[in-house]
Amino acid sequence: MIIPIRCMTCGTPLAQYWEEFQRRVKQGEDPEKVLDDIGLKRYCCRKTLLAHVPSIYEVRWFRRVL
């Protein structure tokens, strides 16, 4: 849905890296290098950024019925 604020395994805050990560990967950089640059070492944090699908950009158009 939307990027998790923390890594659900170890608790490191991750969401602040999301936009930089997304931008650089879209520009064609190797995700591995971007993650190394950011300084995320553990694979729990790396997978959280790597495997995230930001579906909120599609879902947000729906109205909530209150």
């Binding site: 939307i2 990027i3 805050p13 969401a15 602040q16 936009e19």
Partner: peptide, 15 residues
């Protein structure tokens, strides 16, 4: 907040 660029919500028009 320690970090100022943590996304909380993505908003559509008229929200």
């Amino acid at each position: 907040p320690v970090y100022d660029n943590i996304p909380i919500v993505v908003m559509a028009p008229d929200q």
